[in-house]
Design a protein around this nucleic acid. Structure first.
Lengths: 210, 210
DNA sequence: GTCTATAGAAGGATAGAC
DNA sequence: GTCTATCCTTCTATAGAC
């Protein structure tokens, strides 16, 4: 009667492989990581490695699509309520941009983009678990602000996309290209402020428009 | 007295190598392309290949940084004059987005992002010859519209970045991840229209604001 | 300069012992 | 399940003939 269907899943060796392969693939990409290197970093033999993952392709796809699923945690992106809609939007934008600028998030984005030709399912997994979730959550937040009369946005989800697009320009674009390694807080705040200003001038309702 | 410093540059074999390697690297990335494949596609022997390029790293870096320099041609991005600023901005946005969505532009962006860890200079070359040029040209255009009283934008270059960020969201993001392979003209137009609407509501001067 | 042929190394994957 | 040792393929790079 005892069910132990996923007992394998918790094998320590398997966990070691997943952990080590995750770090290596995310940091260096598919081509630059050998199965030897994964085995060495995980402290297992190559035979053990292949006992758990049938091929390098499969290992890579598992690891990265798993990383896409984890790295979201958009739950706590939404800001604390404030009397000023601009403050809330700034807080929200700041959290999103800081999340995107994390080394790990940047690295995952890079790897997925770089290998999305060879592994199309990764592009899909990344989009569904990252941008698409953000679009829904953020869009719903905008819709609530509409309902409360604090914003006047015709298409909330499209507007969420546009706002995120403004966050992902300049600073983030350079970071994703390996330029501007660690942007200052001031630069981040300035980028967020630019997006918030544009957004509120376009869609703010009430006295904040000017 | 005759100068022939770049006679080598025009060697037909060398041109064949550059052309073939360009296609292969842009299409498949660094790791997935072998020197054998380059030699075969160029119709030369590997010895000839190595006579022109000392290593695979060097060949890759030359080819891709060259591709970054070429693929810009932002010259003809600027729109024809029109009586309506919205029409001009739409035309401009449409040209930018269509340029970015070209297979070749997408592929170069992907390769550079993917290999920017291993080849940091490529990220720089891409940014300097792509986004940075666009930012300057587009920013100057906005400044001219300011001067003509058709727009009222406090920081033209930053605004140019924001506008381009809005173009690079949704549709383009999915395309760069390998989803939504060939977007329809209607989708492209809708994306541009969204960005133009936001931009003009925020920074339009005159009656177009509402 | 160009080719054919190959050296030398490294990577992916597996056989067999425990 | 795990390891050691190894096979086979593929890759980068070069030597030597033309």
């Amino acid at each position: 009667m005892s069910i132990q269907s996923d007992a394998e899943t918790e094998s320590p060796k398997r966990q070691a492989i997943i952990s080590a392969a995750g770090e290596l693939f995310v940091a260096h990409g598919y081509g630059a990581v050998s199965m030897d290197a994964v085995a060495r970093a995980a402290g297992v033999s190559k035979a053990t490695l292949y006992a758990h993952f049938a091929s390098k392709d499969l290992l890579f796809a598992s690891i990265i699509s798993q990383a896409c699923r984890e790295s979201i945690a958009v739950a706590d992106i939404l800001p604390d309520p404030s009397s000023d809609i601009g403050d809330e939007l700034s807080a929200l934008g700041g959290r999103i941009l800081r999340f995107l600028l994390q080394d790990r998030a940047l690295a995952i984005h890079r790897v997925v983009i770089g290998e999305s030709i060879r592994f199309p399912e990764l592009g899909r997994a990344f989009y569904d678990n990252g941008p698409a979730v953000l679009r829904r959550v953020f869009g719903a937040w905008i819709a609530r602000q509409n309902a409360a009369g604090r914003l006047d946005v015709p298409e909330p989800e499209r507007a969420a996309d546009l706002f995120c697009g403004m966050l992902r320009t300049g600073l983030y674009l350079r970071a994703s290209l390996g330029i501007a390694p660690s942007p200052s807080e001031a630069e981040i705040d300035a980028t967020v402020a630019g997006a918030v200003t544009m957004f509120l001038r376009a869609y703010g309702s009430g006295p904040a428009t000017d």
